[in-house]
């Protein structure tokens, strides 16, 4: 009995950790999936926006002495603008080019931004100084039996939920959100309706980048590690989450992020922590094998 209780509390603890991680993956994944939805491009530089988000907030609190909670919205705004700029410089000139050209450009931008960050911030791993963060972040919010949850975890989960809710409202309740969905279904007809396709695409980049930047700050907090290559691994994982849920589908990216985060934490907890990346990719491969359109992705519609 004792043993059983111990097992179930470990299970719950892992679930809590998995949800925290999954929420962050989901925040990044929606950026991939939204951009893919409107321009059929895997924006491989999205992970770098996430990295820049972590670094910008870091610089604001350490160099400029901006309070942490003021640095968050500032960082988000700058990264949103940065996403628009990225599209404008790198992708818009290639809108009518073969898709491979834009994909290679995305990889190029990713490498460029990694090295730019290396140049600006150097290669050592940084972390947000504890002094600028609320003390409560590192205190336990509650302890039930063997399960503990810190305020930081609660903060991450809450931010994730709030951001997802806002995103849902934007996509389903605003005109520009409806236009985003329209463009993802039929670009030519959207243009024929008078929708400024490029402006909506810019907006999509802005929203995706804002979510990515927030995720970067959260991960920087959670793992205490900010470094130029942090976007690579997180980017690939989030991309996997987007594919898992069905690329192009926003609820899919949310679900995919959650599933991946939980699978990863459970794999690390019950098997071996070295396998954590392997497990998340194995989950993705299984889904692609058996349900190529993703968990809730729409199958390609036959045009009549």
């Amino acid at each position: 009995m004792e043993n059983l209780l111990g097992m179930s509390s470990l299970f719950l603890q892992q679930l809590v950790n998995g949800l925290t991680l999954g929420g962050v993956y989901a925040l990044i994944a929606v950026g991939y999936t939204m951009v893919y939805g409107v321009i059929e491009l895997i924006n491989f530089a999205h992970g770098e926006i996430y990295m820049l988000g972590a670094f910008l907030a870091y610089t604001m609190v350490t160099v400029f002495g901006i309070p942490f909670f003021a640095a968050i919205p500032l960082t988000i705004m700058i990264c949103a603008c940065f996403g628009i700029l990225l599209d404008f410089i790198a992708y818009r000139p290639l809108r009518r080019a073969p898709r491979l050209a834009a994909l290679i450009t995305a990889i190029g931008m990713s490498i460029f931004l990694q090295n730019l960050a290396l140049l600006i911030w150097g290669g050592q791993i940084r972390s947000y100084p504890r002094a600028v963060l609320p003390k409560a972040f590192f205190q336990n919010a509650f302890v039930v039996g063997d399960i503990t949850m810190t305020w930081l975890q609660i903060f991450i989960l809450a931010v994730t939920v709030v951001f997802m809710f806002i995103l849902h409202l934007i996509i389903h309740r605003t005109q520009v959100g409806t236009a985003m969905r329209a463009i993802s279904q039929d670009k030519v007809t959207s243009a024929l309706m008078g929708i400024s396709v490029n402006r909506v695409i810019s907006f999509t980049f802005a929203i995706g980048s804002a979510m990515g930047a927030m995720a970067g700050i959260l991960v920087g907090l959670y793992y205490n590690a900010i470094f130029p290559y942090m976007g690579y691994n997180a980017g690939i994982k989030a991309f996997a989450a987007a594919v898992l849920g069905g690329i192009g589908s926003v609820p899919g990216a949310m679900l995919g992020g959650g599933v991946l985060g939980i699978a990863e934490v459970f794999g690390a907890g019950y098997l071996a922590s070295e396998y954590r990346d392997g497990i998340s990719y194995a989950v993705m491969i299984l889904v692609i094998l058996f349900k190529p359109s993703g968990l809730i992705g729409k199958p390609i519609l036959e045009k009549v």
Partner: peptide, 19 residues
């Protein structure tokens, strides 16, 4: 071929016309 937005509701389709 009409090119209705298949995953928008009828009303959303109409609203897109008035974008």
């Amino acid at each position: 071929g009409r090119r209705i937005f298949p995953y928008l509701t009828v009303q959303e389709n109409l609203m897109m016309g008035a974008y």
